[in-house]
Design a protein around this nucleic acid. Structure first.
Lengths: 193, 193
DNA sequence: TATATACTTGAATGATCACTCAAGAAAGGC
DNA sequence: GCCTTTCTTGAGTGATCATTCAAGTATATA
């Protein structure tokens, strides 16, 4: 009996994520969203409720996408291979609106005022770190990484290195791919005592 | 003949820097600045010209302060010792309004739209990297770091690690001091072959 | 003490912010 | 064709944005 919406909700969330990713929370106005999503304010609020609610959706989608890509790498190259190829992949910005991590950008922008969006970004980062740790444990089980390291410690450092890489990739005149290679090389050296 | 201003310009710039550092460019309104600097709009614009002009001043002061602290460390602990103690120092946030680097935050917030404030932050980061390289060269001259490494390459990686550390320090539930220790330990391993 | 020279004040500017809502348009079931 | 239900439209909300400026106040020199 009713009328169907004209938009593809999933595609809209992707568009919004790319916009928020590039310009940040405060840097993205509702007018920007209206233009990019091709929606009038009324439709926007009927569909998403608020700017913050949509941002939350994009944060979740961003994180889910990241884990999905890493898990795909693990299937293809094994746990250590995935951890080694992920850095280069993540700053290869063809098709990606920014090189820095959207979760990190959110924490930096909103973390100071204890915003709940920052808290959510933070928890996504922690889940990511957990996935890194799991891959390190699997690499240890396969004897590709020495057992004398603590997987959580390795994951914490790997996450930090990745965040640094992705900030560096946002700078001008920095060869971020070279840094990505160094991070991958560093993991190779974990194989033996 | 004239009347003297009631404010201490230097102190005001410090206050503004701390506010911008914590909340970022868009997150800091003129009302915030008026409150923190205890100035009415007229005085503010007479003194600084615009929000952007003041931000530029705070960016310069932030960068100058960073190089000064690192150079002081070098005098006290030598080039390698300075590079090793800098990471822990920089995330020891007692007295500092945020742990992440203000220059990095600015690049992340404004880098996408080719803002000139982001460009200035970027060039400050490059100057910092140059100082890191100089310290690595001195450490090599003193045989504390092996000569088979390229100082610029070491500096680029060090800068990236530092940026990652400082983003990590902004997160919840992350032992950033542990990461700082790992970075310092990593430098020790550069001494031989 | 008079005057020139700042500096300080705060109301007002137009623009933009996120958001609301009443009215109209489209699609199903009868 | 009619009615119900949902979606779309876009003008309008009050708040806040950075900025301006005319009027008032204080100081130093003459």
């Amino acid at each position: 009996m009713p009328r169907k919406p004209e938009y593809d909700r999933d595609a809209l969330i992707d568009l919004a994520r790319d916009l928020f990713w590039k310009r940040g929370w405060a840097g993205t106005s509702l007018k920007d969203l209206e233009r990019t999503l091709n929606m009038k304010p009324g439709s926007f609020y009927a569909a998403f409720g608020s700017k913050a609610a949509l941002f939350e959706l994009t944060l979740d989608r961003y994180a889910e996408n990241g884990t999905r890509r890493l898990e795909a790498l693990a299937v293809e190259h094994g746990p250590l291979g995935a951890l080694q190829s992920y850095p280069a992949l993540v700053i290869d910005a063809s098709s990606s609106p920014a090189k820095a991590c959207m979760l990190a950008k959110t924490v930096l922008e909103l973390g100071g005022q204890e915003d709940q969006l920052a808290a959510r970004a933070n928890s996504h980062l922690s889940r990511m770190e957990g996935l890194f740790a799991e891959l390190f444990r699997k690499a240890q089980a396969a004897s590709h990484v020495s057992g004398r390291y603590d997987a959580e410690t390795l994951a914490r450092r790997y996450q930090s290195d990745l965040l640094g890489l992705r900030v560096s990739a946002e700078r001008q005149n920095v060869d971020a791919q070279a840094i990505a290679r160094e991070i991958a090389d560093g993991l190779t050296r974990l194989s033996h005592p």
